[in-house]
Computed example of a mutant assay.
Amino acid sequence: MSADLAGAFKDAMAAVCTPVAVVTAMDGDRPHGTTVSAFASLSASPPSLLVSLDRGSDLLAVITVSGEFGVNILGHGQSELAGRFARKGADKFAGISWSGADRVPRLDGAPGWFACRVAQTVVAADHVLVVGEVYAVDTASAAPLTYHERVFGTHHVPA
């Protein structure tokens, strides 16, 4: 792909408003997590979703071994949390309130949460799509954290 096409693609995708989540997994007793905007509902029967992770992702390696992961849907006001988990490093959970709900890390205050078993992985370009069969879910009504034009924001219902 040419640099011009790659740049145009990135600019066009930046114009798409996406929800923000932190995908988590346990490596023994150590939690791992990363911020994603590439995740989606896949099926209601069985309840399934998918997340897209870079092939070189440390989290992908943990999920591949553990066979389970969590998806923490972030709410408006949690952009600092999203930024923290978007960076590289081993101390992402330092000072963060979380629990080991259903064997995967659950971030306190995240209005949406899913615990999933890996059902399938699909290599696609430089990423891996991880299909997760949901075995636990919790949700609370809250304005979502969104990512649009390379900044965090939220959704407002038109008058």
Rank of each mutant, 00 (worst) to 15 (best):
M1Y: 05
A3W: 00
A3D: 06
D4H: 00
A6L: 02
G7C: 00
G7A: 00
G7P: 01
K10D: 01
D11K: 04
C17E: 04
T18M: 02
T18G: 03
T18F: 00
V20F: 06
V20H: 03
V22M: 05
V23K: 09
T24L: 07
T24Y: 08
A25N: 04
M26K: 02
D27Q: 10
D29G: 01
R30C: 06
P31V: 00
T35C: 04
V36E: 04
F39L: 06
S41W: 11
L42P: 01
S43F: 09
S43H: 06
A44T: 11
A44K: 05
A44E: 11
S45K: 14
P47F: 08
L49S: 02
L50Y: 07
S52T: 13
L53S: 10
D54P: 03
R55C: 12
G56H: 12
G56C: 07
G56L: 13
S57G: 11
S57V: 09
D58C: 01
A61N: 05
I63Y: 01
T64P: 00
V65A: 09
V65R: 12
G67Q: 12
G70A: 08
V71L: 15
N72A: 11
N72M: 08
N72V: 07
G75P: 00
G75F: 03
H76V: 06
G77V: 12
G77E: 05
S79L: 09
E80I: 14
E80N: 13
L81E: 07
L81Y: 04
G83N: 15
F85S: 10
A86D: 08
R87Y: 02
A90R: 11
D91M: 02
K92V: 09
G95T: 10
W98I: 07
G100H: 15
A101W: 13
D102Y: 13
D102S: 07
R103H: 07
V104Y: 08
V104G: 02
V104A: 00
P105D: 02
L107R: 07
L107E: 05
G109V: 03
P111D: 08
G112T: 03
G112S: 03
G112N: 03
A115Q: 06
Q120F: 08
Q120W: 04
T121Y: 05
V123M: 12
A125K: 11
D126C: 13
H127R: 15
L129Q: 09
L129Y: 09
L129K: 06
L129G: 05
V130K: 03
V130S: 04
E133W: 05
V134D: 06
A136L: 00
A136S: 11
V137L: 15
V137G: 06
D138C: 01
S141C: 02
A143S: 14
P144E: 03
P144I: 01
L145Q: 08
E149S: 13
E149R: 14
V151E: 13
V151G: 08
V151T: 15
F152V: 13
G153E: 10
G153A: 10
G153K: 13
G153Y: 07
T154W: 01
H155Y: 13
H155P: 00
H155V: 14
P158R: 14
